[in-house]
Amino acid sequence: MNKLLRMKITLFERFALISWVVVVVYLFAVFRDQTHPDGTLDELLKLFFSSLSAAYLQ
């Protein structure tokens, strides 16, 4: 525990982690009430970017 408490998370790790969390939670919010694709990465990314562009266009 002490070792853990002394542990530092670098700026890059923090940025990468927070970005990843935002992407996953955003995807979760996007998928609600939708007929999901079959969960494959390419379809997830397609939906992610299409939803981003849709939000931008609005």
């Binding site: 996953v24 079959d38 494959t40 997830l44």
Partner: peptide, 19 residues
Amino acid sequence: ETTRRIVYTYLFWPFFGSF
């Protein structure tokens, strides 16, 4: 083919899949 896709995306389907 779908089975292959399921296996390749095992990290994702439990969270976003709707098979």
